[in-house]
């Protein structure tokens, strides 16, 4: 059974978001990393890049397949997790911690309303299984 912490918001496409003072930290869910299998390569965006909600912003590649990571919110990338270049497995080991992918300064706080809370996401993932 995969985990989905209560303090995060979740996208249909399996990203999580934690918002702190207008900055969204984004990663992929425990369910997503488990489905992908061992990650071997992560392509993070450049700092300064801007995305609309729903844009492909990063790529995670596992032993099995490549998968886009969509930004759940609009805004500018202000930080990326450089550690993933050498240790993509951080996403497998700690999807909600050291395995974060990018931080985006949000331009529209209302977009958070389009995301699921942990309970809704857990239900969505159970439907998947």
């Amino acid at each position: 059974m995969s985990e989905a912490p209560d303090n995060l918001k979740y996208a249909e496409s399996h990203e999580w978001v934690q918002v702190d003072d207008g900055v969204a930290t984004i990663g992929i869910s425990d369910h997503a990393q488990d489905a992908l299998g061992d990650l071997v390569f992560v392509e993070v965006p450049e700092v300064g890049a801007t995305f609309d909600a729903g844009d492909a912003a990063a790529v995670v590649e596992s032993v099995k397949a490549a998968s886009d990571v969509y930004s759940p919110v609009s805004g500018e990338v202000i930080a990326v997790n450089e550690a993933l270049a050498d240790a993509p497995e951080l996403i497998n080991d700690e999807p909600y911690g050291e395995g974060w992918i990018m931080r985006i300064r949000m331009t529209d706080d209302d977009e958070l309303d389009n995301l699921m809370d942990a309970e809704a996401y857990a239900a969505r993932v159970t439907d998947d299984d």
Partner: peptide, 9 residues
Amino acid sequence: MPIAYGSQL
């Protein structure tokens, strides 16, 4: 068929 039992690596 089993694709993996845990970590494929």
